[in-house]
Nucleic acid binder design. Structure first.
Lengths: 336, 336
DNA sequence: TTGAAAGCGTTACCAC
DNA sequence: GTGGTAACGCTTTCAA
């Protein structure tokens, strides 16, 4: 049985409503009394009961984050960043790694103030009536909830343009366009749109399906590509994890980055700089993204503004020296 | 404003205490009434308010898991497994990735039924009086809370014995014995104890400090080792992530596993079998560990037995073909 | 089999 | 400034 404000009231000889005020640092209570009450609370080892507090105040100061796929580096980083933002705003964050519908149902029962959902493989169905503010992180597409989209399509589009401007013609995209993960599909679309626009043809050598998102999937696919007849001059990787494997394959094939082959990776996270070969990357900087997400959810909770249903964040390219003009262009330049 | 049992009561024309009983499937309410009430609840889109429920029942059916370092593969896997066990027992699980003391304080305020703590870098201090059942996962050592220890020391000890029995003399341990992470220190101790016992000397070539726990740390350290003058015939890796890097380095040095070099890794997780070269590994099988942890915490919560303060689980070796006798022994055998 | 009422630990409002 | 008390949504006696 734990200590309650009534216990504190009894010991310090005041009413428990006064204790409540003191504990909440209300200006309505005399400094002396407050000080005494606080001391007693401490002596008694009082821990506020949030359950009771939340019941009456109808507010939990807590947000829930649904995160069904815990094994992708970039997402882990995003979760960590979101948590920092949440704490900075004096909220708590709870994670659930269950499937989306189960997790949301649970958070709803616990009356968290809001929920962030990482769109996963299970499509998000609006299964229940609720006023629970929900923000999703995924691909905008007449979604039932407000969504933060990071424009995956444009990110890869920009990557292609960037490489092409350097003079690359033989560009391959290495990714995993699973039909279940919209984000991955968008990336591939960006690739096709850009290539079409430039007038470059795409074939099975320019779009490599890794059939998975682990580093090893990236490794296997790239190894196969590089041992084939046509080696591209530039590679676009679909994620950080894939890049780890791509780098390994490139290395084993004795190719130098960027001299022999240029690489640009999706996922704009700090870890890119700490790879054996730091990679130029494209995407929304993770810190910015986290801040946007948390602020948006908080706005949604406090209804401080009419937050648009869809917010698309634009990717930026962060250069880390892994891209240069292709060998032939460099050669040409020597004579020009 | 959400639907409450009073709303249901009004619509179905019964008292709200009857509704409560019906919702809890009490045998005290007539099947007909129950059915009707359930229907009304569904029509109204009722979601039980756990906050209120928990307040009166003093039970949340929820456990909290403190997980400050979310970026280690083996730990992600363990968390996933624990979650499965928790769900199987009809509990909920909430994660916190904050530092231990902050997280426990939060879980305590929310009155979760129990907490599992992954010992991290911050030493665990008993900062508050509380009856909150807490189970830690770490290294047994007059810990303030019940602990599940997986005998890291013995795991590496067994690995050394196993390799030595195969005929290896030149064995290196590759790990990160950071002074802040007891688990890592224990592993190194196991190595030394075993080597001493066998009568093999250890030097800076047999204990490699990776200075980090990512795959790249493993890669760098191993690369350096293999380019040195003395190449061991067998390697013991401190973790799955390190093994990924070790394998890469071994590969780049054109060494074949197990022909040229044997490798055994700590962390008995299924991913070991899916590596490019499946690795024999040692440790407590992750599923078993998760089950033990959840059952122990639940026992602690329900006080069904006097759970010992310390429970040490024994490691097992799972063979996956990455170890064989060293080349010289094999050669000897040919003539014997 | 159903209903009434107390109570869980708080906050918030209204008296004093 | 401080105290009394209703209310939050639910479970759990106890009575009917």
């Amino acid at each position: 049985m734990s200590v309650t404000i009534k216990d504190i009231a009894q010991v310090s000889g005041v009413s428990y409503s006064t204790v409540s005020k003191a504990l909440n640092d209300s200006p309505l209570v005399k400094p002396d009394t407050k000080k005494k009450i606080l001391q007693v609370a401490k002596d008694l080892g009082y821990t506020p009961n949030f359950v009771a507090k939340n019941l009456v105040s109808k507010k939990s100061n807590t947000i829930g984050l649904v995160w069904p796929t815990i094994e992708q580096t970039a997402l882990s980083t995003l979760v960590t960043e979101i948590n920092n933002q949440v704490v900075k705003n004096n909220y708590f964050m709870m994670l659930s790694i269950n499937d989306t519908n189960h997790a949301v149902e649970m958070f709803n029962k616990f009356r968290v103030d809001g929920v962030i959902i990482f769109e996963g493989e299970t499509p998000l169905v609006k299964t229940f009536e609720s006023t629970l503010p929900i923000l999703t992180y995924g691909v905008a597409n007449n979604n039932p909830y407000p969504i933060i989209d990071v424009n995956h399509r444009k990110a890869i589009y920009e990557a292609v343009s960037y490489l092409n401007n350097l003079g690359h013609q033989k560009i391959s995209y290495i990714g995993y366009p699973s039909h279940k993960d919209k984000r991955q599909i968008e990336k591939l679309k960006g690739f096709h749109v850009a290539m079409d626009e430039i007038g470059l043809k795409t074939d099975e050598n320019s779009t490599i399906n890794t059939d998975g998102l682990t580093w090893f999937d990236g490794y296997t696919a790239t190894k196969k590509l590089l041992q084939g007849p046509t080696i591209p001059t530039a590679l676009i990787s679909g994620s950080y994890d894939l890049s780890v494997g791509i780098l390994r394959a490139v290395n084993e094939c004795k190719l130098k980055v960027p001299e022999d082959i240029s690489i640009i990776s999706y996922d704009n996270i700090p870890q890119m700089a700490r790879l054996e070969t730091p990679l130029t990357s494209v995407g929304v900087p993770i810190g910015e993204l986290a801040e946007k997400m948390v602020n948006s959810l908080l706005d949604l909770i406090n209804k401080t503004n009419s937050f648009p249903l869809t917010e698309v964040m634009e990717p930026v390219i962060t250069k880390r020296g892994s891209c240069s003009p292709p060998a032939d262009v460099k050669a040409d330049e020597r004579f020009s």
